[in-house]
Amino acid sequence: MTTTALWSRAQQQDFRARVRGCLLGGAIGDALGAGIEFHSLDMIRGNHGPAGVRDYVRAYGRRGAVTDDTQMTLFTVDGLIRAEIRRDGGTWPAPEEVHRAYLRWRVTQRYQEPDPRDPALGLLGRQPWLHSQRAPGNACLSGLDDDRMGTLAAPKNPESKGCGTVMRSAPFGLLVDREAAEVFRLAAECAAQTHGHPSGILAAAAFAAIVHGIVRGGTLETSVRQALGLLAQWGGHEETTAALRQALDAVRQGAPSAERLEALGQGWVAEEALAMGVYCALVAEDMRHGLLLAVNHGGDSDSTGSICGNLLGALHGETALPPDLLAELEGRAAIAELADDFALELTQGAQLHGPDAASAVWSERYPQG
């Protein structure tokens, strides 16, 4: 993958397919786990058969419904696009733009429809289907209850390491024009906006680094090992490092199973959710197999499904997505459109805006402020 401003047509097509795969794959995994998120493994098997869930289960009034995991992931993308546009002014205020995006997500959890008078909403903020509470995490909500932005030096919720940081951080890894260490740090900075425990911050950063390695053409295992190298440079990395090493070890311990997955944890905390999603992606025979393994356990099924889907989608691209699951996915068209906009911004942004002029349509989709 190129790291310069010059992209060949083949590179642009490959990148767009990976971005689409990452965002749509994560949303499919999220939706597969949405209806069983709080169920034990015994309950899942009792309700759906020995193999567990094999298809979408109704949640939030429909099949294929996504949760806060997908919602916040999309707002991460929105913030990163706006940060890229602001590079025209000589700065790259990515943490600030992502924070503003998360505040816009917070509004969707308070009001049932967008405010048409708000000029800052842009394309994503005007989507009525996103104005719905889908079991958002307490730390994500409380961390965004006021305008103060948490930082690495002064994070919000300093004792929290819930998986709400990891499940929204795949888009940082799609910044392939940045180096891995920069992507890692940016994801860490944005995780601190809601969660302050080192494992909550560093699991999100490691996840972004893994996605980054994949989209740049690396294997999943190589990308995990590169992330471990980055983790080792940060204080407080021990829990996340141990969890990822346990995931790598589990691959060699026998055939994949729900019981083997549950040995890695339940996914409610960040390092466990990361390890479980990584394990399922590593042992996946194909996209469907990995996603179903990732959700059929007695823990945070939507988050582990989302993480696994992000990884497999980034690795294999959109054509690997199960077509029947893709067809029924809530918000499919909007997610694909946002993915295309992200790819367009990174590969051809200079033709859409600059210091002296900008596309009026692009400015309306991603306004400043």
Rank of each mutant, 00 (worst) to 15 (best):
G213N: 10
G200D: 05
H212V: 11
V183K: 00
A205C: 01
A188V: 11
F207D: 02
A204G: 15
L228K: 09
A187Y: 05
L220Q: 13
G218H: 14
R178H: 13
G229I: 09
R178E: 07
L220W: 12
V211H: 02
A203S: 15
V176F: 01
C190W: 03
A192L: 11
A180W: 07
H197F: 06
R185D: 14
T222K: 12
A232S: 14
L175E: 04
G213E: 08
I214A: 00
A203M: 12
I201H: 08
E179Y: 09
G196M: 08
E221P: 12
A180K: 04
A203N: 13
A203Y: 12
R178V: 01
A191K: 06
A208W: 07
A181Y: 02
R178F: 11
A209Q: 06
I201Q: 02
A181R: 13
A209P: 10
A204M: 02
A206Y: 02
R225Q: 13
A204E: 02
V224N: 01
G196N: 06
H197M: 03
G200T: 08
E179T: 14
I214G: 00
L228E: 14
V215P: 04
R216T: 13
L231W: 02
R225T: 06
L202I: 09
G229A: 09
W234P: 00
E182G: 05
A227G: 14
L186S: 03
G217H: 09
I214Y: 05
A180E: 10
C190D: 14
A209Y: 08
A191F: 09
F184I: 12
T194N: 10
I214Q: 01
T222G: 15
A206I: 09
L175Y: 07
L220I: 15
A203L: 10
L175Q: 14
H212N: 06
G213S: 10
A232N: 11
Q233P: 01
R185E: 15
R216A: 08
G217Y: 05
A209N: 05
Q193K: 06
L230R: 08
L230M: 10
D177G: 07
G218W: 03
I201W: 04
V211F: 06
A209E: 04
A204F: 01
G229Y: 06
L220K: 12
G213L: 07
H195D: 07
A203P: 12
V183N: 03
G200S: 06
R225N: 01
G196S: 10
W234D: 13
H195E: 08
T219D: 14
L230Q: 13
I214K: 00
V176G: 01
W234I: 00
I210F: 02
E182I: 04
R225H: 02
L230H: 13
V224K: 00
A232V: 08
R216M: 10
A181K: 07
A191I: 10
L174V: 13
V215Q: 03
T194M: 08
H195G: 09
